[in-house]
Computed example of a mutant assay.
Amino acid sequence: MSPRGVAIPDLRERLFAAAERVVARDGAAGLTSRAVTAEADCAKGVLHTHFAGLDEFVAELVLDRFARGARRAEGLGALVGRGTVAGNLQEVADALLDSLPPAVARLAMTRAVAAMHTQEGIRSGAPAFDAIQGSVTAYLEAEQLAGRVAAGTDVGTIALALVGTVHHLLMTRVPAGDEDGDRPRGGSGASTARLVSVLLGAEPGTGA
């Protein structure tokens, strides 16, 4: 265990990664501050030293993963003219779906205080799905100028449809082994692959 009073490098990410492991192993009910710090091999009080409570911690975890997704979407700009348009979009969609375990996403929705903190963070400018949509739109506009997306294609609507679908799947997937309901289960990449094909495949010259 890390000694008391010694700074822990990358503490936030260490705690976030530990929380994801706890949820993956024990389910949402197993996520407690003590379980997280034990998994992270930290002193018991570390989480409450840096976060107001478990709800704020869950919200910050979700916001951190949204920001990671936004950074991944920004990387689309470096892919203009490379690979295929559909393939590049699919890689980003898959990365977004992998950015947050289904059980953690459900926690952020079902814990009212965590949901409130998450929304407050987004309203305050934390990068989330609006930023991701903007990056996808900018990428498609650049590919349109390069001739790989047909002139006249409504790239803004394509970006909205893709990001909206990813958001829906990310926030409604049922974790593996959860028998509750008929919502989409993990491994939803096939759904986004079909969507990308529909959005781009109907347009000539997409490079898909």
Rank of each mutant, 00 (worst) to 15 (best):
L61F: 05
P204I: 08
R12H: 14
G201E: 12
L96V: 07
A142W: 00
A190M: 06
R194I: 06
A128Y: 00
T157F: 09
L79N: 03
T32Y: 05
D26W: 01
A59W: 04
P3V: 03
A59Q: 02
E39L: 02
V136R: 04
D182F: 12
A86P: 11
L54P: 06
L195P: 07
L170I: 03
G177C: 04
I132S: 00
R65L: 04
V136L: 04
S135A: 15
I122T: 03
L31R: 01
L140F: 08
V149W: 02
M109Q: 15
A67C: 03
T192G: 07
T137D: 11
G87T: 04
A73F: 02
R12N: 12
G53T: 09
S2D: 13
D130P: 00
F66A: 02
L100E: 07
R185E: 11
D26C: 04
A103T: 04
G152D: 08
S33R: 06
R82S: 11
A43V: 05
V166Y: 00
G83F: 00
P9E: 13
L31S: 00
L199F: 11
S124R: 10
A128F: 07
L200T: 11
A151Y: 05
A190K: 14
V46F: 00
Y139K: 07
A108Q: 03
G189Q: 15
